[in-house]
Amino acid sequence: MQDRTSAPQEIALRVDGRKRRPDSARLRRLNILVGVLSLPLFVGLWELASRSGAVNMVLFPPPTVVAAAVLEWIRSGQFLGDLLASLFRVTTGFIVGGALGILLGILTGQFPVISSLLSPLFHILRPIPPIAFVPIVILWFGLSEAGKLFLVVWGVFFTVWLSTHIGVQKVDRGLIRAALMLGTPRRQMLQEIVLLGALPYIVVGLRTAVSISFYTLVAAELAGTFAGIVYRIEIAQQNMQTGQVMGGLAALGLISFIADRLFAALAERTVWWR
């Protein structure tokens, strides 16, 4: 009986759906169009707002002024130096912190004794924001590159360590039993099963660490240095070159975005069986 009562409604719905189909296609096209126009629209609004006289143009320069500042930055040759300095800090810190994180994550994930020894310490240190270490890093390392690297390594390490540790512990016990039954020696179990089983977690940890390495880069360069994107932003701020400040922010955002996308593409190939 229930069927009979619900039947007319169902038909009504179906008719409704058929009527809507062309609508939804149009809606999708509209969405794409709006998406394409989104950035130009906001840049245009920004330009108008800055030039309308309602705001102080020195503090809130229009995009054309920002673009000019960026062009000048590139032409002077400073941009390349700043870019290389920042990239060096981020990549070196990421590689060192990531390698240490993976190594120790495997050790603490696989061997309970090592986990009992190190995990409590790591769990206490991990929640302290890396930025909070700036003062002590200046005391220890002064304005040297070692201090900058320390901050980035610190930030990257804990994220990668934790995800590796969890990944190793979450490796399917069934896979390990199957491998044992097939005669996999304990020694080969790590490389054949545990490492690959944990790989998806490790990759997620590394990807999170990419953005973290940029956060810590900001702290590291604000702590005092002689070149770098964030350093340039700070200098421009002291000289009231607001256009240059905004250009620096845009450059930082763009580099961080490219790094994330590159890593995502790489990650997809690393976990090849998905």
């Binding site: 399917d172 069934g174 896979l175 039993r177 199957a178 005669g183 054949e192 690959l196």
Partner: peptide, 19 residues
């Protein structure tokens, strides 16, 4: 312990997903 002359098939296939 596990030995080469004894094979086992589990309820779940437990195939190595990366192979």
């Amino acid at each position: 312990g596990p030995r080469p002359d004894v094979g086992m098939v589990f309820q779940q296939p437990h195939l190595f997903p990366w192979k």
